[in-house]
C-alpha cells in the first residue's frame, strides 16, 4: 500500500543473501531528561489515558520515571475537563468516557504544574490534534501468505476512500478481542495520495504472523471460530508522519535505504517529546471459517 513495502522486498533479498545480525555492546551518552507525553483520544466509548513521563538513558532497561501531580486539561471549542490522576497508576491521567469526542473538533491538551528542568519555575505544555470523521468498512477478507520465508494471515479491506479530502489511515488488528498490534511500530498506515476517492476492494492492510523468517512459530495460531477484528483509524497528517518516523526509528536500519537516524516529530509544545494521538475508529470483524483455515492447511 505504500512504497515502504517495495523497499522491504530488497531488504529481504539483500539481508537473507549476504548479511548477519548480532548484538553489539555500545557505550551511549546520557542526555538531560525530557518531558514525554503519550496520550490517546478517540471517538470510542471508553476511558482514554494521558501518560506523562520523563525520558531516560537509552539502555536504562526499566520503566520511565513518571510525572505525577500535574494539572492536565483537555478541551475542545465547546467544553473543557481537568483530568484526574489514576492513583493506582501514577503518571497516568484519565479521560473519562463521559467526555465525548465530536467530529472535526480540535482537541487540546494543556499540561501545567510540572517542573521538569528543576529550575523552580513550573512549565506548561500544550498539544492539539483534530478528530476526523471515520470512514466505514464495507467488509473484510482473510488470506494466507507464505512468501518471503514467512507465514502469515493477511487481512483484506473493502472500503471507499473519501474523494473530498486527503485522508490518512492506520490499521490495528485484534484476535478474539485481544489487540495483536499493540505498538505503534506494528500499526500499518496509509495515505490516500495514490488512491484518493477510489474503491478499496480487498487490499491487504494488516497481518497476523504465524511463522517468522527464523522459522519460529507463534504460540497461538488462528483456529476455527476465532474472531479477527480490524480497527481502521482515521488519523491526521501529523500523526501519519509520526507513525512513519516511529517505524523508521525502531526498525532495521541498513545503509541502502535508511536515512540518518532522526528524532521522531512531536506535537507537544515547548520542546517536549511524545505525541497526542487523536483519531476516529471504524471496526469490522470476520469469523474464521473452515474455508479460510483450508487456505493455510491445503
Amino acid at each position: 500500500m505504500k512504497n515502504y513495502n517495495i523497499k522491504y522486498l530488497f531488504l529481504v533479498i539483500v539481508i537473507s543473501l549476504f548479511s548477519c545480525t548480532e548484538e553489539i555492546e555500545m557505550d551511549l551518552k546520557s542526555s538531560e531528561p525530557k518531558f514525554v507525553v503519550d496520550a490517546v483520544f478517540t471517538d470510542q466509548d471508553i476511558d482514554h489515558f494521558v501518560k506523562l513521563s520523563i525520558s531516560s538513558d537509552y539502555f536504562s532497561n526499566s520503566i520511565s520515571p513518571v510525572v505525577s501531580g500535574a494539572t492536565v486539561v483537555l478541551s475542545d471549542e465547546l467544553k473543557e475537563i481537568e483530568l484526574e490522576e489514576d492513583l493506582t497508576n501514577l503518571g497516568t491521567y484519565i479521560i473519562p468516557r463521559t467526555f465525548k469526542g465530536i467530529y472535526n473538533q480540535v482537541y487540546t491538551l494543556t499540561i501545567s504544574g510540572v517542573d521538569i528542568d528543576g529550575d523552580g519555575v513550573e512549565e506548561s505544555y500544550t498539544a492539539s490534534n483534530t478528530l476526523y470523521e471515520p470512514i466505514p468498512i464495507i467488509k473484510l477478507g482473510m488470506n494466507w501468505d507464505a512468501s518471503r520465508n514467512e507465514e502469515r494471515w493477511t487481512i483484506q479491506l473493502y472500503s471507499k476512500d473519501n474523494p473530498d479530502k486527503e485522508d490518512f489511515y492506520a490499521f490495528a488488528v485484534y484476535v478474539n478481542g485481544k489487540l495483536f498490534s499493540d505498538q505503534i511500530s506494528e500499526l500499518e498506515y496509509a495515505w490516500d495520495r495514490y488512491f484518493n476517492g477510489n474503491d478499496v476492494s480487498g487490499v491487504t492492510v494488516q497481518s497476523i504472523l504465524e511463522e517468522d523468517s527464523d522459522g519460529k512459530k507463534t504460540e497461538t495460531p488462528i483456529q476455527l471460530g476465532d474472531w479477527v477484528k480490524l480497527e481502521m483509524q482515521t488519523i491526521n497528517e501529523d500523526y501519519y508522519h509520526f507513525i512513519n518516523a516511529v517505524h523508521e526509528e525502531t526498525g532495521l536500519q541498513v545503509p541502502l535505504f535508511s536515512g540518518p537516524p532522526a528524532n521522531v516529530p512531536s506535537n507537544v509544545s515547548n520542546g517536549a517529546k511524545g505525541f497526542f494521538r487523536v483519531y476516529s475508529v471504524s471496526v469490522d470483524s470476520i469469523q474464521v471459517t473452515q474455508e479460510i483455515l483450508d487456505l493455510r492447511d491445503q
Binding site: M26, L28, K29, S30, S31, P33, K34, V36, D38, V40, K51, S53, S55, S56, D57, Y58, S60, I63, S64, D182, Q183, I184, S185, V246, E249, T250, P260, P261, A262, N263, V264, K273, G274, F275, R277
Partner: peptide, 23 residues
C-alpha cells in the same frame, strides 16, 4: 560517523530513541 540515541521514551508501546547530535 553515525547518530546514536542518548535517551529513550515510551510512546504507544514502543521504546522510541531520542537523538542528540547528528553523526
Amino acid at each position: 560517523p553515525y547518530t546514536a540515541p542518548n535517551g529513550r521514551m515510551f510512546v504507544g508501546g514502543d521504546i522510541v530513541p531520542i537523538y542528540s547530535a547528528r553523526n
